[in-house]
Design a protein around this nucleic acid. Structure first.
Length: 400
RNA sequence: GGUGGGUUACUCAAGUGGCCAACGAGGGCGGACUGUAAAUCCGCUGACUACGUCUUCGAAGGUUCGAAUCCUUCACCCACCA
């Protein structure tokens, strides 16, 4: 039982520091029911969670199954600084109002995965605000500039003449201090957080906490492009609040290589099942697309339910395999004689008439599933389905 | 505080008086091929009912027939020195 728990905990992780401690904590839980705390920090900058965030959330959920109380830390104070991790430029500072607004939608989405009864939401503003200038100075005295510059992204930015705000140096310190305050047993985060996570251990030692937290790092999930990390600003994300057909479609559009990565980090399938699946695809017994469909269904089901996920699949197959029209389309009304390029813009299919004309010239635009080539066309009265490329559809009603 | 360098489209990055709506690369979009996969090939990538007009090269002025390019002021960034 304990062995199985530890295997599940270790699954998909990039690195674990002090696995022994985790082993002890889990063992103790199974011996006398003593729980332990697992901390994870969340930046309230992105109100929309995407699959990249869920990698971490799922790991937390795993811990909850094995006796952990999750400390769901909202970095409302640190968000005012902006985590420098992985950023090539200094991040903009958020206002208090923006932060408050982001938090509620954030936690709501997170509880689609986490067990609410085993989760404590904490805000680091509660204790960091009280730290005061003196406290911060004391905290900062624990670290040298040279040590800070050891950190990869700082040194890269430094050597490439990219600015580093002094306040950014404080970020790892404050995050580490959170672990001191919360006396966390374990902290989990992405590999890009390594420096910050280790800071927690170091500061716990300095502040006289005998048991330093274990650190568990999850790999960063690549976005749908398969190269860069999943992030909203890069537009390569799959959001958990997106419509079922969006989630399903986006997963199906990832590359085969990336699919295995998603299986490892996002699927609930056991390790053996995944290995078998991979073997079947490699040997040609199973078409890779089948494996991808299964994954897409599983993940869509997680955020909705099986029925809606199946519907999404059917819709997808109808539109893209059978080339039928989607069942749901935005509808617009337009005056008679409207110029086709203008109609495409008004239906939000194109950003400008210039772009619309270019696409018509490139054979990308269809009316009622027939390609058109006349960019000067005016629409007479009637109902049409406009389409740009493979994915963009709209229904328009022309005339009164 | 001093000295030097920099700011060009989504990003990186050419361009130092007209050939510049601005090379190139990446990204994005579209087409072909497919499994809406990858890889590959091709095209497009400021706006405007459009072989012309308008707005863009940190900001504002100026010189000039003509400026991303020259001058002035301002803002921001970086390095070295203090």
């Amino acid at each position: 039982m304990i062995k199985q728990a530890l295997e599940e905990i270790a699954r998909g992780t990039a690195e674990i520091i002090d696995m022994e401690r985790i082993k002890k904590l889990v063992t103790q839980y199974y011996t006398d029911g003593t729980t332990y705390t697992v901390k994870a920090g969340f930046d309230p900058t992105a109100p929309d969670l995407h699959l990249g965030h869920t990698v971490l959330l799922q790991k937390l959920a795993t811990f909850q199954k094995f006796g952990a109380q999750v400390q769901f830390l909202i970095g409302d104070f640190t968000a005012m600084i902006g985590d420098p991790t992985g950023k090539s430029v200094t991040r903009k500072v958020l206002s208090k109002e923006e932060i408050v607004q982001n938090i509620s939608s954030y936690t709501k989405q997170a509880f689609k995965i986490l067990d609410e009864s085993k989760t404590t939401i904490v805000y680091n503003n509660d204790w960091l605000e009280k730290l005061g200038a003196a406290g911060i100075l004391q905290l900062a005295s624990n670290l040298t500039v040279a040590r800070m510059l050891e950190r990869d992204d700082f040194s890269k930015r430094y050597t490439s003449n990219t600015p580093i705000a002094v306040s950014e140096f404080l970020y790892p310190l404050l995050q580490g201090y959170d672990s001191v305050h919360l006396r966390s047993d374990i902290e989990i985060g992405g590999t890009d957080q390594k420096f910050n996570l280790l800071m927690g251990r170091q500061l716990q030692k300095v502040y006289g906490i005998h048991k330093q937290q274990s650190v568990l790092m999850m790999p960063i999930l690549e976005g749908t492009d398969g190269v860069q990390k999943m992030s909203k600003s890069l537009g390569n994300y799959i959001g958990v609040t997106e419509a079922p057909k969006e989630i399903y479609g986006k997963i199906l559009s990832i590359s085969d290589t990336l699919m295995w990565r998603y299986y490892e980090l996002l699927s609930d399938k056991s390790l053996e099942e995944t290995v078998k699946l991979k073997g079947d695809v490699a040997s040609g017994t199973l078409h890779p697309k089948k494996a991808k469909e299964a994954l897409a269904l599983e993940i869509t089901t997680r955020f909705y339910n099986e029925e809606l996920a199946t519907l999404a699949k059917e819709e997808f197959d109808a539109v893209f395999k059978a080339k039928k029209l989607p069942t749901q389309m935005d509808e617009y009304e337009m005056p008679e004689g409207i110029w086709i390029a203008q109609a495409l813009v008004d239906a939000n299919l194109e950003p400008s008439t210039s772009q619309a004309r270019r696409d018509i010239r490139q054979n990308a635009v269809s009316i009622d599933q027939k390609k058109i080539s006349d960019e000067k066309l005016n629409l007479s009265a009637g109902e049409y389905v406009l389409q740009v490329g493979k994915k963009r559809f709209a229904k328009v009603k022309v005339g009164s």
